[in-house]
Nucleic acid binder design. Structure first.
Length: 389
RNA sequence: UCCUCGGUAGCUCAACAGGCAGAGCGGCCGGCUGUUAACCGGUUGGUUGUAGGUUCGAGUCCUGCCCGAGGAG
């Protein structure tokens, strides 16, 4: 078997653990952060640069690649790894999240989901079997079950959705033909402890090689997310990797590793990079701010990334203001370096037995955006989406 | 010298027939978590060239002057 997950060290004061996940395309030291390359590219940077940043795994999206260029094209090109020239481990997301974020473009039934392409409006149906087939043709090392990711606060709906997600998980397990891809089951259940526990138990009974937790960081307070992890993770097999889908701010990394998460994927660092925000140990820095116009210091003193070693805030601000493409590129490099480096430091601290101290020290110096602001923004965005529909 | 057109936010321009002077861009600020996102939102900008006049009320109508573009000589 090409897959093997070894736990090297467990933290004494938390659920944190350091491990090593072996895949057909190399090892992933955990905790790990997977940059997201939705359309078979981590936006604005090359696989070579990704390698230089020492990314150990990336997350790619089956939904997007199914629509364009299509799994056949990728299969004919020799699979995802060769197609995108990334030789390291890849995981594909099933597309469950994308289909459900289409809202008005879809119909959900027990059999599967019928939806319209956001690109050309054409109609498609995803079933668990279909999604596995797509992911097998794409050829990632780790693939995801097809799941339903509902709004987290509607209990009745989450009961139904969870039932479907569980049936679909079984069907995905059945549908799998290749034995060189690790299929991850996805825990759902909104913010409800009983549903999450039921989900964890059920999926554990299906004995997946890995488990993902989905439906979090979708607008619920951080405490709710932490609580979900606290009640869910103890019910998952201890010797299997645990992936937290779509989560990955610096503070999340600490809080979720402390609760037993091994892997993350998140668009946050690359997306905010394209919009002028840099991650630093003190919080986010918005390079558009006028106060950086003549600031010749690097984004973060002591940061070893190419961007910080080479360019000033003044220059990076100029690039951003002038909408020069290099600004996007350099910001992406910095933000990915920041998170990947932070993840490495977290791992090392677990190995050294200093994780909790490191966590407290980091969080004390890191300014987190208040939940109220996040909520307010989320509400605005939802409102706009509804108005569009 | 005369004729014509024009002068409104930093820029480009709106404002029906006289009725609360607005957009876009820029500037400034905020947000972004399994990417429909190099995106989205908020916000700051004005003695309407100027001095008078008519009118209940003038960016708008009338007169003088200033500035710009074009034309005639």
């Amino acid at each position: 078997m090409a897959f093997n997950f070894t736990i090297i060290k467990e933290d004494e004061h938390s659920q944190a653990r350091a491990g090593l996940l072996q895949t057909p395309h190399g090892e992933i030291p955990t905790p790990a952060f997977a940059p997201v390359g939705t359309q078979a590219t981590v936006k604005s940077i090359s696989p070579r640069e990704l390698g230089e940043l020492e990314a150990s795994v990336i997350m790619v999206n089956a939904y997007h690649l199914y629509l364009r260029p299509g799994p056949d094209t990728i299969a004919r090109a020799g699979g995802l790894h060769r197609f995108m020239a990334w030789d390291g481990p890849i995981m594909t997301d099933s597309g469950g999240f994308q289909v459900f974020s289409l809202e008005h473009l879809r119909y959900v039934g027990d059999e599967g989901v019928t939806f319209r392409s956001h690109i050309d409006g054409s109609e498609h149906t995803f079933t668990p079997e279909k999604v596995i087939e797509i992911q097998e043709r794409l050829g990632a090392d780790m693939i995801m079950c097809f799941d339903e990711c509902p709004a987290p606060w509607d209990y009745e709906y989450n009961v139904q959705a969870l039932k479907r997600t569980h049936q679909w998980a079984e069907r995905c397990r059945q549908a799998q033909r290749r034995d060189d891809q690790a299929l991850f089951g996805i825990v759902q259940g909104g913010v409800f402890a009983d549903l999450r526990q039921e989900s964890a138990r059920f999926l554990a009974s299906l004995d997946f090689p890995g488990y993902a937790i989905g439906g979090l960081s979708v607008g619920e307070p951080k405490e709710a997310m932490h609580k979900v992890l606290e009640v869910t993770i103890p019910l998952l097999p201890g010797n299997k990797p645990r992936h937290l889908l779509g989560v990955g701010s610096p503070e999340d990394l600490f809080e979720c590793v402390a609760r037993g998460i091994d892997m993350f994927d998140c668009v946050l660092p690359t997306r905010i990079a394209r919009n002028g925000a840099f991650l630093t140990r003190r919080g986010r820095l918005n390079i558009r701010n006028a106060r950086f116009a003549d600031d010749l210091a690097p984004i973060e003193e002591g940061c070893q990334c190419y961007t910080c070693r080479t360019f000033s805030r003044a220059y990076l601000r100029h690039l951003t203001q002038a909408e020069e493409i290099l600004g996007v590129h350099l910001a992406t490099i910095h933000n990915l370096y920041f998170l990947l480096n932070l993840t490495r430091q977290i791992r090392q601290s677990i190995l050294d037995g200093t994780f909790t101290a490191f966590k407290e020290q980091f969080l004390a110096g890191y300014q987190i955006i208040p939940h109220e602001i996040r909520q307010w923004n989320k509400a605005l965005r939802l409102k706009r989406l509804r108005e569009q529909a």
